[in-house]
């Protein structure tokens, strides 16, 4: 682990309490993860714009920076300098806390995802449960945003977010039980190590259920009910401007990062690939961008479901399928 024996000895010698040592290492790591995921957001937004442009016969950003790569930076600086409108009727604290909650929940979720052998901040023994649970708190942020902005579209967006979370939380969690059974652990690094053979082949039903409910969990098309632009003008973030909106954007993309990374870890063998162990992160990145591309491809191809169809799909198709998956896995493993 990263808190190596020498460091502990050094701390003990100099009278530094162990928690302070932990905290300082955690701070360094948190900043590293933050810069990494900041870079990731920049790359993903650029990729999203380029992929969508490619699908739509367009060019995408070309003018700002080399091949338009500085586009997001320009957008961010602009959002930073925009006026911060705080609507008169909005609830003071709900309105303020919502973007922060969405952003922090998504960011903290990145803590347990291993991107290479031993390259992980905290390898929790319940890492899988943690990474399923913590990013879902973001939904509370959406509901707060919807309720706090005193706006009808935002309100309906927040309620839809809640409805969607209610329907897809369970299938998503149940679909990975099969993996826990196979790997015999809920620790993410153990799950990766157990994958001599990728779990996507051993758990095809689980993979499908997981991918679909992940799309719903991170509110991407065809499940972007909370921000359905054609009816709810901008969904839960209708009243937000400037940097507060940017945090919703960050939150959304960091959720995409953690969802895609989790898919790689659980089903696509994590950092495993031919070549020495040192290439692990590179293999991880290749698989990661593959998954992200698929998610974007879906996003720019499909229309949106209706809210009742969304819930039907969750409860009547995905949940039974996920339970069936557990059943099949159990029976096959017992035989």
């Amino acid at each position: 682990m990263l808190t190596s024996v020498e460091l502990v000895e050094f701390a003990a010698k100099n009278g530094i309490p162990i928690w302070a040592l932990d905290a300082s290492i955690a701070l360094v790591l948190a900043l590293a993860v933050f810069s990494l995921c900041g870079l990731g957001v920049i790359v993903l937004v650029y990729m999203e714009r380029k992929v969508s442009a490619d699908i739509q016969l367009r060019l995408g950003p070309t003018h700002v920076g080399p091949r338009g790569s500085l586009q997001l930076i320009a957008d961010m600086i602009k959002l930073l300098s925009k006026e911060d409108v705080f609507p008169k009727h909005a609830d003071r604290w709900l309105f303020r806390l919502a973007p922060a909650l969405v952003f922090i929940a998504a960011f903290v979720g990145l803590m347990v995802i291993p991107i290479g052998p031993r390259l992980v901040v905290q390898d929790l023994s319940v890492g899988l449960l943690y990474v399923l649970a913590i990013p879902s708190i973001a939904v509370a942020g959406l509901i707060m945003a919807g309720f706090g902005s005193y706006n009808k579209y935002a309100m309906m967006g927040g309620l839809r977010a809640a409805a969607q979370m209610v329907s897809y939380e369970v299938p998503r969690a149940l679909s990975v039980i099969g993996i826990v059974m196979l790997a015999g652990s809920a620790k993410l690094s153990t799950i990766v190590d157990a994958q001599g053979f990728w779990y996507i082949f051993l758990q095809p039903i689980g993979f499908m259920v997981f991918l679909v409910s992940t799309l719903a969990e991170i509110n991407r098309v065809p499940f972007d009910m909370p921000e359905a632009e054609s009816e709810l003008v901008h969904g839960y973030s209708t009243e937000y401007s400037g940097m507060r909106y940017a945090f919703f954007l960050f939150g959304e993309y960091i959720a995409l990062i953690s969802a895609a990374a989790l898919t790689v870890v659980l089903f696509l063998g994590g950092w495993h690939g031919p070549g020495p162990e040192l290439l692990g992160p590179i293999w991880f990145a290749i698989k990661f961008f593959g998954v992200v591309f698929v998610i974007m491809w879906v996003r720019w191809t499909l229309p949106r479901f209706r809210i009742d169809q969304v819930m039907d799909l969750g409860w009547k198709v995905l949940l039974p399928l996920a339970l069936l998956n557990i059943l099949i896995t159990g029976i096959v493993m017992s035989i």
Binding site: A30, L80, V108, V121, M243
Partner: peptide, 23 residues
Amino acid sequence: EIIYFSVFVAVGLTVVVLMLGIQ
């Protein structure tokens, strides 16, 4: 683990506060 978690939350919160302050 709890220390790590709280540090992560604190870093996230600092970023939010810092950005809104700059704005």
